[in-house]
């Protein structure tokens, strides 16, 4: 379990990084936190010719929370979103789902190294942050030698471990739009062991109208499906009071919408069942948050 030979570059600027990436083409791989990439290298499941370590690139380690949303730089570690600093606290106010989901990412040692953006760029359907990006309607900022662009989540995720990112490109940040007024979120996960990849996870957003009736309910699931998907569950609960909506109808609707696969740890039927259970548990919690945010 030692990596195959590779070259290593640690550019000091984004331009240098892009230069190396363009010169190397498909054989280059960007290294940030390394929590997924290094095990793949050690097991020789991946053998890039060169690793482009972006950890020395300045300006990628910031969390910027504004009224529009939260922009998370490519070198921000998962753990940085979990509170303890003004940036994290501001981010949690603007988009509470971010920290809520991050708390379910692996273990402290992994959260201290792994990055939110790296997790998104890795596009593992078992990762929490891909679905959070989708559910919040987020996007990623991509730098290429020819300029920068913002790619919406739906255009970014192509398949499991596959994105539309061109070879010579660095995802410099991810943007999670703010939670709208009168909306609330919740996140829950079932894992075999604490900190494991979820057998099934669910993130939801519930939005209320002026009368505290449900105007929208959306959900995205973890370890369900090949790419992140946002499921609109509004029809099951539209117009119902936030504190007395028929959440089980929304759960049933969710069960019918998803198409989970079986793996070593869970059958497809069980996963579908959990989609219903977690939907039924998270929606009322999100609605309650929406109520309290409406009152504020």
């Amino acid at each position: 379990m030692k990596p195959a030979p590779f070259r290593y570059a640690d550019p000091g600027t984004l331009d240098e990084a892009l230069e190396v990436l363009s010169a190397e083409g498909e054989g280059a791989k960007v290294l940030a936190g390394g929590q997924s990439l290094l095990p793949l290298l050690s097991m020789r499941l991946a053998a890039p010719a060169v690793l482009v370590d972006i950890n020395r690139v300045p300006g990628l380690d910031t969390i910027e929370a504004t009224g529009d949303g939260v922009r998370v730089g490519a070198l921000v570690r998962h753990g940085a979103l979990l509170g303890g600093g003004p940036d994290a606290d501001a981010a949690a106010r603007v988009q509470p789902l971010l920290a809520r989901a991050t708390a379910h990412v692996a273990h402290p040692a992994i959260r201290n190294r792994g990055t939110t953006v790296g997790s998104i760029a890795h596009a593992d359907p078992s990762g929490e942050m891909t679905s959070v990006l989708a559910l919040t309607g987020g996007s990623v900022a991509v730098a290429t030698p020819s300029g920068t662009s913002e790619i919406p989540w739906a255009d970014f995720f192509v398949g499991p471990l596959e994105t539309s990112l061109p070879a010579a490109a660095v995802v410099t940040s991810a943007f999670f739009p703010a939670l709208p007024p009168r909306a609330g979120t919740a996140f829950a996960e079932i894992a075999r062991r604490r900190g494991d990849y979820a057998v099934c996870g669910a993130g939801v957003v519930v939005t209320l109208d002026d009368d505290r009736r449900v105007s929208a309910a959306r959900a995205a699931y973890i370890s369900v499906g090949l790419v992140p998907e946002v499921h609109d569950l509004t029809e099951a609960v539209a117009g119902q009071p936030a504190d007395a909506a028929d959440w089980s109808a929304a759960a049933a609707l969710a069960r019918g919408k998803v198409d989970p696969d079986a793996d070593l740890h869970a059958g497809a039927g069980y996963r579908r069942h959990l989609v219903g259970v977690l939907t039924g548990r998270t929606l009322p919690a999100a609605a309650a948050e929406a109520v309290s945010r409406s009152a504020a």
Binding site: I190, R192, V199, H265, A266, G267, G269, Y270, H273
Partner: peptide
């Protein structure tokens, strides 16, 4: 026995 198997058994 894992939760998924218990689910199958109960159903």
């Amino acid at each position: 026995i894992a939760p998924s198997e218990l689910f199958d058994l109960v159903n």
